[in-house]
Design a protein around this nucleic acid. Sequence first.
DNA 1: CATATGATGGACT
DNA 2: GTCCATCATATGG
Length: 190
Amino acid sequence: MLPIEDLQASGRILNRGFYSRDPSLVARELLGKRLVRRLGENLLCSLIVEVEAYYGAEDPASRASKGLKRFNRMMWMEPGRAYIYNVHRHWMFNVVAHEPGGVGAILVRALEPILGLDIMMRNRPVKSVRDLTRGPGRLTEALSICKRLNGADLTEEGEILIADNPLRVDVETSTGLELEGTWRGSSDSS
DNA sequence: CATATGATGGACT
DNA sequence: GTCCATCATATGG
């Protein structure tokens, strides 16, 4: 099992400063990081492999584009917290990220499962492991993430956190703000 | 109450 | 890959 104590001891949990920067910069550096979910005694670990950055008024696709509302208020809140909302019948997991006084969030679109595959498969029975955590609505189901975790602090030990990853990651940029990472594996770590 | 939504799964070509 | 039914939540009238 993955001892959560190790994450703390090595100081690897990403701190508030990491998230207090331009959203697209945070998005890029989020790729390859470890998303750790604690479910009782079980620990689920996965790598973030696809993300999307959202800004404020200047970003038409952003939920924050039309100003501060109840449903998007998390995007103005403290960076490093979870912002979770529903689309159709799926939960979207975002990380609040913006410069001081700003607004923004990063949508996590895909994960690569590392530990706790059995639990994930139980949460989300699927034929192919490929479909387990590929897609924003799929990964939240596999990790049992829902509105209850909205506002959760990802910078300290709790039900969910994001930690660094010593392995290197290749980054590809697509249409503007979408980023995709490929985990190159231990042979390419530096 | 009507409508919109940053999606998914399955069927299909 | 495309098309389409699905049906949870939030918002606005």
